[in-house]
Write a protein that binds this DNA or RNA. Structure first.
Lengths: 148, 148
DNA sequence: GCGATATAATAGCACTAGCTACTATTGCAA
DNA sequence: TTGCAATAGTAGCTAGTGCTATTATATCGC
């Protein structure tokens, strides 16, 4: 059942999103929207391409999330004076408290998800997931092996 | 950055799906469709509700995946003689080789994802992910705490 | 300066996923 | 036996995600 690791991760991630979405329902943003907001908070004025790169998703995914967050009034697109193809993304004032609230909720949920694990196990888990993520991240880039 | 654990898992799971989808493109089924096929293989004649329960997704999600897999000719719905509300789901002959091929692909990809981890670390990773998944699974059921 | 190439963002299509609401059927209880 | 609650499945809406293709702009080479 080795192959099930991939789906174990999938389940855990989906259940995490679902649980956080449920907690955050009153904020009006989803867990994944919040993650984007958190990146914008730390990188005000970033382009969508930059954000897509950091989130490791396709630009079109960010494009559509930005659409929704703009419509909801949480962020705004400003034209980039140096590149008329690009937008610069900024949080609006009203998004600030949401980002803070969600951080607390996410921390609580992580604590619940890691229930029963010792501090050492938690650190080990984070280390291992990070490694797996890096392994999978790189395997998407290169053309597997000699497909050229 | 504790809260990032949830998103680390999310990234790892998404990259895994993406990589497996890319490998499986020629089979015509996605990685998640394959997971459903694998459950049907082990439980021929199961109901959609049963499968939703095992996959820990909502019944409607299975309903729509079954729609697509029926249309693609990989599975078939047969009426349940004991319950006219329910379907019994069966693999078709042509799905068998696909399930086998995909198992190999998934195993290879898991091996790549776990690259650099010792056997002990791999076992530990599986154990920890399983625990986290269970923690999150149960926290979706109960009404958090006293919300009634 | 001009043309080829690269890049930023977006449009259309498809799949996974969940919520709420709904239909059809079952099964229990009065 | 009838009537109501529970259950199996589905429809509409929305969100995240990716692929391919397209548009607009930038940049590099000449």
């Amino acid at each position: 059942m080795t192959e099930s690791i991939g789906f174990l991760m999938n389940d855990a991630a989906r259940l995490f999103r679902k649980a956080l979405d449920a907690r955050a329902i009153e904020t009006g943003v989803t867990s994944l929207q919040w993650r984007l907001l958190a990146w914008i908070l730390r990188n005000p004025g970033a382009s969508q391409g930059f954000l897509a790169d950091r989130l490791e998703v396709e630009p079109i995914t960010v494009s559509r999330m930005v659409d929704r967050l703009v419509e909801a009034g949480h962020i705004e697109r400003r034209p980039d004076p140096d590149d008329r193809r690009a937008w610069k993304i900024y949080l609006t004032e009203c998004a600030m408290p949401i980002v803070r609230d969600l951080r607390t909720m996410a921390d609580d949920l992580v604590d619940q998800a890691l229930d029963g694990l010792s501090p050492a196990e938690r650190a080990e888990f984070e280390r291992l997931v990070t490694r797996v993520r890096e392994n999978l991240s790189s395997c998407g880039q290169e053309p597997l092996n000699g497909h050229a």
